[in-house]
Simulated assay, not measured.
Amino acid sequence: MREAKYKMFYAAGNYWIMSCDSSDEQYMTPIIINETGAVIWKYLSECNSLNETAQRLSDLYGITIEDAKADVSLFTDSLRKYGIKYI
C-alpha cells in the first residue's frame, strides 16, 4: 500500500500527488497525474491489491485484464521513480 504521507488532490483542472509530511528534509515537487492515474491511486488507497486494482480498472474501462495490469504496473513504476513505494 502507498505510504500515508502522500495525498491526491484535484485542483486547477488536474490531479496532483503531494507529500503531506512536513518532516521531509527535501521538498517534493507535486506530481501531476491523469484521470486514469487518479482512479488507480484511489483503488490502491482503498487497500486493494495490484491485481484487484487491475480487475476494477478492467471493469471500469472495458479493457482486457492484461492491459489493465500493464497500466497499473506502469503507474506504480512511475511513482517509484519519485520515491513513492508500494508493498
Rank of each mutant, 00 (worst) to 15 (best):
G13L: 07
N14G: 07
N14D: 12
Y15P: 07
Y15V: 12
Y15K: 08
I17V: 13
M18D: 07
M18V: 15
C20H: 05
D21G: 06
S22N: 09
S22L: 13
S22K: 09
S22F: 06
S23R: 10
S23C: 09
D24Y: 01
D24W: 00
E25D: 08
E25W: 00
T29P: 00
T29M: 07
P30Q: 06
I31L: 08
I31Y: 00
I31E: 01
I32Y: 00
I32L: 05
I32H: 00
I33H: 01
I33Y: 00
N34F: 02
T36W: 00
T36Y: 00
T36C: 11
T36M: 12
G37L: 06
G37W: 01
G37V: 09
A38R: 04
A38T: 10
V39C: 13
I40K: 03
I40Q: 04
I40F: 02
W41K: 08
W41N: 10
W41A: 11
K42P: 02
K42I: 12
Y43H: 10
Y43R: 11
Y43P: 07
Y43C: 10
L44V: 12
L44G: 07
L44F: 05
S45P: 02
S45Y: 02
E46D: 11
C47E: 14
C47T: 14
N48C: 11
S49Y: 01
S49H: 02
S49Q: 04
S49R: 03
L50M: 10
L50T: 10
L50F: 07
N51I: 15
N51W: 00
E52D: 14
E52M: 13
T53A: 04
T53H: 02
A54P: 05
A54G: 06
R56I: 09
L57H: 03
L57N: 04
L57M: 05
S58Y: 02
D59N: 10
D59M: 09
L60S: 08
L60G: 05
Y61F: 11
G62H: 02
G62T: 08
I63V: 15
I63E: 04
I63N: 02
I63D: 03
T64I: 09
D67C: 12
D67Y: 02
A68E: 04
A68D: 03
A68F: 02
A70R: 13
A70W: 00
A70M: 13
D71A: 13
D71Q: 13
D71M: 11
V72E: 03
V72T: 06
S73W: 00
L74I: 15
L74D: 15
F75I: 10
F75C: 08
T76D: 04
T76L: 05
T76I: 15
